[in-house]
Design a protein around this nucleic acid. Structure first.
Length: 833
DNA sequence: TCACAGTGACTTTTT
DNA sequence: GTCACTGTGA
C-alpha cells in the first residue's frame, strides 16, 4: 500500500493545489517520504485504526506528524477538512501548520489547534447547550482566584487562590463539585462547598475558566449523542502531539471525539512528561494501547538533533528514573565538544559569565539567535535581562512577565470583557472604581446583589447585567456614588453603542450602507478579503489555526504614542492602517476605550511617579487589535486569542538576531544550536526533593533542557544565591552528579562540596544500594559551628535524614539541645570557617 | 472612601 | 525582596 499506483490521480490533485498556492514549489510525496528513516516512514504510512508513536527527543516527531498530514491528504485522498491535530501550545500548533502547509498546501483546511482553542471553538457552537453566555470569555487563573474570593468571602486572598488552583486540578480530572473523588485533592469538607459556590458564581457570569474549555465539551458529548455524532462526522482523523502531557480530561475528550471510524494517532515521549503538576497523566500514554483497540506502536529512537556528547549527558541523567519505557537515544550527528560545567560564585557572576560567553561567540561571528538561556523559574530571568540590557545584547524573552498579566492591560481587558458580556462580575469589580469614581466596596456589594437577583428570572441569559444593576442602584446611592455610577454606566453604554453602530454597517439594512459596501468593493484593494469572523452554522465554522496578529510591527509605533499622550490629549495618532480599510478596526475601539475610561490618564500619572511604561503598554494593546474588525465577533475573537495564546506575546520572532531567554518548561518542542542551562543548584533546579516522584519530574525537566541543544551545551551552577532577600549558600544540583565525570568538562574553580560529593559517589559506586545521602549533608556536617537567632552559638552533634527531610541536632552554648531542618528554618545559620 | 505605613507570608513550572 | 492584608488618620 505504499508507493503503489496512486501517481496519476494524485498528481492531478497535487498539481491543482500547488499552483493555486503560489510560487513556492512543494515537494512530492516521494520527496518527503525519501528523507524519512524506516520507522518514521512506517509511522507516516501506517494504515490501521490507532497508532502510538513513542518519539524520543529530537527524533523527528514534528516531521512525522506533518508528513503524515500531507500524506493522508495527498496520497490517501483524505479530506483535509476532516483532519484534527491538537497540540498543547500555540507555538507548536503554528509550527505544525507551517510545515504541513509547506509539504501539502491543502493542509490549510485541516484543523491544527491547541486543546484549549479547540475547546473554545467547540463551545462557541454550543453555548446554549452548555448553559453559558453567547459571548462568553475565558477567565484566567487570577480571575478565578478573585471569583473564588468573592464566592467565599471568609477565605482570604491566598486561601482563595489555593482553592481556585484545586478546583482547576479537579477539572483536569473532570470531577464535579459532588464527585466523591474530590478528596484526592483536598479531603476537607470545605473544598466541595467552595467548588460548588465557585461554580455557581461562574455560571452566573456566563463565563468559563480554562478547565471548562475541556470539561464542558466532554460533558456535552457524553450526554448528547447528536453532538457526538456531529463531531464524529466532522473529524475522521485525529492526532495528538506531546501526548505525554495530556491530562485525564483531555483523554476523555479524545475518547469522545474518536468514533467507530475515526483514525487516531498520538505522539509523545514519557521521558518528557513535565506537567504532572497541572494534572498531566503519564498513564495516558503508557496505557494508550489498552484504551484504543488494535494499537500499533512505533518507537523513534534515532536522534537527529544533538551531538553524541550531549546525548550521553542526557542519557546519564534520565536513566536514573524508574518509571519509564526503557529506551535510549541513538545519536546520528557527528561528534562535538563535551558539555561544559562552570561553577560561579553568585548569580551576578553567572549572568556576567553567560553574557561574556555570548559576546565572545558573537565576536567570532556566532549569531545571538544561536543561543538559548534556560532557567527553572521565571524570576531568574530578571538578572539576565538587566545584564543584557546593560551590555546591549539583544534578547527575546519567552513567557515571563506576561504582557497580558500587567495591571493596566488587565484593566483595559476588563472593560472589553464587560462590553462583550455585561454579566462578567470579575471584570465589573475590576474597573467599576478605576480610576476612582467614589464607588466603594459597600456600593459594589449592593450592585452585585442586585445583579444576581436579576438573574433570578430563570432561563439562560437576559438578566444579571451589571450595567442595568448600576442604573437601578443610582436611585438609592449616595450623592458621591451616584455621580460615579453615572459616569461608569455612560462609559460602558457609549462603548457598546460604538461597537453596535459599527457592526450595523455590516448588516445590509440602510441603503447608504449598501452603497458603502459597493464603494469598498470597487475602490479598495480586493486582494485581501477583510473577512470578519461571522456567525455561521456550526458545521461551517472555519477551524484552521488562525495566524496571530502581527504584533511585532505595531511595536514600533508604541513608544511614540506613549510620549505624546502624557496628558489626556485628544488622540493624535489615528491608527496607521497599513491596508486601506473600509471597516473600522478594533484597535480604534480600544483606543477610544483607553481615553474614555480615563485609564490612559490614570496610568500616565502612575508612569510619572513610578517610571513605568503603562501608557505605552495600553497603546500597544490597541495596536495589537489592529487585525480584528470593530465588531462584537471581532472583539470576542480578540479576547479569545489573548486568553488562549499566552505564549507568543512579546516575542519578535523571525529574523531578529537575539538571544532567547526561556524557562525550561517553555522550551518543549524547541531546539537551539547552543544552550546554557543555568541555576543548577539544589533547591533551584531541582526545586525541592519532597518526593521521589516529583524529583523524577524535575529530572525529566533537566532532560528536556539538555536535549534542546544541538551543538553546544553549557551548565552553570552558583555557590551562593540571594533568596528571600538573603544571601544563601547553595549546593550543586544532584543532577550534575549523575552525569559521568568523563562526560563533562569542568571549567574554572571547582567547589569543595562538589568534589567531595563526587568522591563519596565514587566510593559508593560499588555499593549501589543506598544513595541516601542527603544533598545538604555535605554542608551541615557534624562539628560545624552554627548560630541561631534565638539560641545563640552552638555546634552540630548529629545529623540524620528522616522521611526525606534533613535534620541536624545542635547543642548550644547555653546547654540546650535542639533539632532543626535547615532547609526550612532559616534562623539557623552556619558560621564560616 | 482613600492613602499610607507597618506587618506577615510566600514564592515552580502553564493552557 | 515582594505582595497582600490590616489599621490608622484624613
Amino acid at each position: 500500500m505504499t508507493g503503489d499506483g496512486g501517481h496519476a490521480p494524485t498528481d492531478n490533485l497535487w498539481g491543482g493545489a500547488s499552483s493555486a498556492a503560489g510560487s513556492r514549489s512543494h515537494p512530492t510525496s516521494e520527496d518527503y517520504l525519501s528523507v524519512l528513516n524506516e520507522e518514521q516512514r512506517q509511522a507516516v504510512v501506517h494504515n490501521g485504526k490507532s497508532l502510538l508513536i513513542l518519539a524520543g527527543a529530537g527524533s523527528g516527531k514534528t516531521r512525522v506528524i506533518t508528513t503524515k498530514i500531507a500524506y493522508l491528504i495527498g496520497e490517501k485522498g483524505v479530506d483535509p477538512y476532516s483532519i484534527l491535530a491538537v497540540t498543547f501550545t500555540k507555538k507548536a500548533a503554528q509550527e505544525m501548520a507551517e510545515r504541513a502547509h509547506f509539504l501539502e498546501p491543502r493542509s490549510v483546511h485541516a484543523s491544527l489547534r491547541t486543546f484549549h482553542s479547540f475547546g473554545s471553538w467547540f463551545l462557541r457552537q454550543y453555548t446554549q447547550e452548555a448553559g453559558i453566555d453567547r459571548n462568553f470569555t475565558v477567565y484566567d487563573d487570577e480571575d478565578s482566584a478573585t471569583l473564588m474570593h468573592k464566592a467565599m468571602p471568609q477565605l482570604n486572598r491566598q486561601e482563595a487562590k489555593s482553592m481556585a488552583a484545586k478546583i482547576a486540578r479537579a477539572k483536569d480530572y473532570c470531577w464535579e463539585p459532588d464527585s466523591p473523588e474530590l478528596f484526592h485533592i483536598d479531603s476537607s469538607e470545605l473544598f466541595p462547598r467552595c467548588y460548588e459556590a465557585y461554580q455557581q458564581r461562574l455560571r452566573e457570569t456566563g463565563n468559563i475558566d480554562f478547565g471548562d474549555l475541556i470539561m464542558l465539551p466532554v460533558r456535552l458529548m457524553e450526554e448528547d449523542g447528536l453532538i457526538r455524532q456531529h463531531m464524529h462526522r466532522r473529524f475522521s482523523v485525529i492526532m495528538v502531539d506531546e501526548y505525554q502531557d495530556s491530562n485525564v480530561a483531555q483523554f476523555k475528550l479524545l475518547r469522545q471525539l474518536v468514533g467507530e471510524d475515526t483514525y487516531v494517532c498520538v505522539v509523545g515521549d514519557d521521558d518528557q512528561s513535565i506537567y504532572s503538576f497541572r494534572g498531566a497523566e503519564v498513564q495516558n500514554i503508557l496505557q494508550f494501547p489498552k484504551h484504543f483497540e488494535h494499537t500499533h506502536i512505533i518507537k523513534l529512537e534515532k536522534n537527529y538533533r544533538s551531538t553524541p556528547q550531549i546525548l550521553a549527558t542526557a542519557n546519564d541523567s534520565i536513566k536514573n528514573n524508574s518509571d519509564r519505557f526503557e529506551k535510549s537515544l541513538q545519536p546520528t550527528r557527528p561528534a562535538g565538544a563535551l558539555p561544559a560545567l562552570t561553577f560561579l560564585d553568585n548569580s551576578q557572576d553567572e549572568t556576567a559569565f553567560c553574557a561574556d560567553v555570548i559576546e565572545k561567540a558573537h565576536q567570532r561571528g556566532i549569531p545571538y539567535r544561536d543561543w538559548a538561556l534556560l532557567y527553572r523559574t521565571n524570576a531568574q530571568s530578571l538578572g539576565f535581562e538587566t545584564e543584557f540590557l546593560h551590555r546591549k545584547i539583544p534578547y527575546t524573552i519567552v513567557g515571563a512577565l506576561k504582557f497580558y498579566d500587567r495591571e493596566e492591560i488587565k484593566d483595559a481587558l476588563a472593560i472589553l470583557s464587560l462590553v462583550a458580556n455585561p454579566r462578567d462580575e470579575i471584570a465589573f469589580r475590576r474597573i467599576v472604581n478605576k480610576p476612582s469614581r467614589g464607588i466603594g466596596e459597600k456600593t459594589q456589594e449592593k450592585i452585585v446583589e442586585r445583579a444576581k437577583a436579576d438573574t433570578g428570572t430563570k432561563g439562560d441569559g437576559g438578566g444579571g447585567s451589571y450595567v442595568a444593576a448600576c442604573k437601578e442602584e443610582m436611585a438609592t446611592a449616595t450623592k458621591k456614588a451616584q455621580g460615579g455610577l453615572k459616569e461608569f454606566v455612560s462609559l460602558i453604554e457609549s462603548l457598546t453603542v460604538l461597537l453596535e453602530e459599527n457592526q450595523q454597517q455590516k448588516q445590509p439594512l440602510p441603503v447608504e450602507d449598501l452603497a458603502n459596501q459597493v464603494d469598498s468593493l470597487f475602490y479598495q484593494s480586493t486582494t485581501e478579503t477583510e473577512s470578519t469572523p461571522e456567525e455561521k452554522l456550526p458545521l461551517e465554522m472555519p477551524l484552521t489555526a488562525e495566524l496571530s496578529p502581527d504584533q511585532t510591527d505595531s511595536l514600533a509605533d508604541t513608544s511614540k504614542g506613549a510620549e505624546d499622550s502624557q496628558e489626556g490629549q485628544p488622540e493624535q495618532s489615528q491608527q496607521p492602517p497599513r491596508r486601506k480599510a473600509g471597516k473600522k478596526k478594533l484597535s480604534h475601539f480600544v483606543e477610544q476605550l483607553n481615553q474614555l475610561s480615563g485609564l490612559m490618564e490614570y496610568h500616565a500619572a502612575q508612569d510619572e511617579v513610578a517610571g513605568t511604561q503603562r501608557v505605552a503598554n495600553l497603546q500597544e494593546l490597541a495596536n495589537s487589535a489592529v487585525l480584528y474588525p470593530m465588531t462584537m465577533a471581532g472583539l470576542l475573537d480578540f479576547l479569545d486569542h489573548i486568553q488562549l495564546d499566552r505564549t507568543l506575546e512579546n516575542n519578535s520572532d523571525g529574523d531578529t538576531d537575539a538571544v532567547t531567554l526561556i524557562t525550561v518548561h517553555n522550551t518543549k518542542g524547541l531546539e537551539f544550536p547552543r544552550v546554557i542551562l543555568t541555576g543548577l543548584e539544589y533547591g533551584v533546579f531541582p526545586r525541592q526533593d519532597k518526593k521521589d516522584e516529583s524529583l523524577e519530574e524535575e529530572r525529566r525537566l533537566f532532560y528536556v533542557g539538555v536535549t534542546r541543544a544541538q551543538h553546544q551545551l553549557l551548565l552553570t551552577s552558583c555557590r551562593k544565591r540571594v533568596r528571600y532577600g538573603h544571601l544563601e549558600e547553595m549546593m550543586p544540583s544532584p543532577f550534575l552528579l549523575e552525569i559521568q565525570e568523563n562526560h563533562l568538562r569542568h571549567l574554572g574553580e571547582i567547589p569543595y562540596v562538589y568534589r567531595s560529593l563526587r568522591r563519596e559517589q565514587a566510593g559508593q559506586a560499588t555499593t549501589p544500594t543506598a544513595m541516601a545521602t542527603h544533598p545538604l549533608a555535605a554542608k551541615w556536617k557534624v562539628g560545624r559551628t552554627v548560630y541561631h537567632d534565638d539560641y545563640g552559638y552552638g555546634g552540630i552533634i548529629r545529623t540524620r535524614t528522616e522521611e526525606d527531610e534533613f535534620v541536624v541536632v545542635v547543642k548550644f552554648e547555653t546547654g540546650a539541645e535542639k533539632q532543626f531542618m535547615p532547609e526550612y528554618q532559616r534562623q539557623l545559620m552556619l558560621v564560616e570557617g
